Amino acid sequence: MTIDDIQGRLESRGWQAVSGEGWRWIDHTYQNDAATLRIRCLPDVNVIRFDFASEERLAGLSISFDDHLDQILDLIIRAQSSLSEETWRPFIASLIELSPQVLSLADEDGEDGVITGPDEGVASLREIDWE
Score class of each variant (00 low, 15 high):
I92K: 07
G60R: 05
R24S: 14
S104G: 14
E11W: 01
F50M: 09
L10P: 01
D70Y: 11
E111T: 02
D33G: 01
E86I: 10
I48W: 07
V45G: 11
I76Y: 10
S82T: 15
L125T: 02
E85Q: 13
L83G: 07
L10C: 11
L73C: 02
I72T: 13
A17E: 02
D44R: 09
L75D: 01
W25G: 04
Q71F: 06
A34S: 15
I96S: 00
L61S: 07
D109P: 01
L98N: 03
Y30F: 12
V114I: 13
A79E: 13
Q7P: 04
S19R: 14
D67S: 07
E127I: 04
R40F: 14
Q71Y: 01
A106N: 08
V45P: 09
L10R: 03
T87L: 12
W88E: 12
D5P: 05
P43A: 03
G14F: 05
D107S: 15
A123Y: 03
F50N: 09
W15S: 09
G14L: 02
C41R: 03
D67E: 09
D74T: 13
F65G: 06
L98F: 02
R40A: 03
L95W: 05
I128W: 05
D33Y: 10
A123S: 13
D119C: 12
Y30Q: 02
T116I: 12
G60E: 03
I92C: 08
I92W: 03
W23I: 15
F91R: 01
G113P: 02
Q31L: 05
L125P: 00
A53G: 07
D67P: 02
S19Y: 11
Q31Y: 01
W23K: 15
A17F: 08
G20Y: 08
S104I: 04
S99R: 00
R78V: 14
G22R: 06
I39M: 04
A106L: 09
I92P: 01
L83T: 03
D112S: 03
L83I: 01
S104P: 10
P90K: 11
P43H: 04
R49E: 09
W23N: 15
D51N: 14
D119K: 15
A93W: 10
S19K: 14
G22Q: 08
D107L: 08
I76S: 10
N32L: 11
Q101L: 05
G121S: 05
G60H: 00
D5W: 10
F52T: 10
P90V: 11
R9T: 00
G20W: 04
W23V: 15
I6H: 01
L105R: 06
V102A: 05
L95S: 04
D109C: 07
G60Q: 00
D66N: 13
W88N: 13
E120D: 15
D33S: 15
I63S: 02
S82A: 14
S82K: 15
I72K: 08
G20Q: 11
S12D: 08
P100V: 09
L83R: 05
I92S: 04
S84A: 14
L58R: 07
W23F: 15
E85I: 11
G14E: 00
V102C: 07
N46A: 14
G121T: 06
Q71W: 07
L73Y: 06
E86F: 13
L95H: 02
I76G: 05
W15Y: 05
V18T: 12
A53K: 15
L75N: 12
M1V: 00
D27C: 13
A106T: 10
D107W: 11
I77A: 14
R38M: 09
A35N: 09
N46P: 01
V18M: 08
V114P: 00
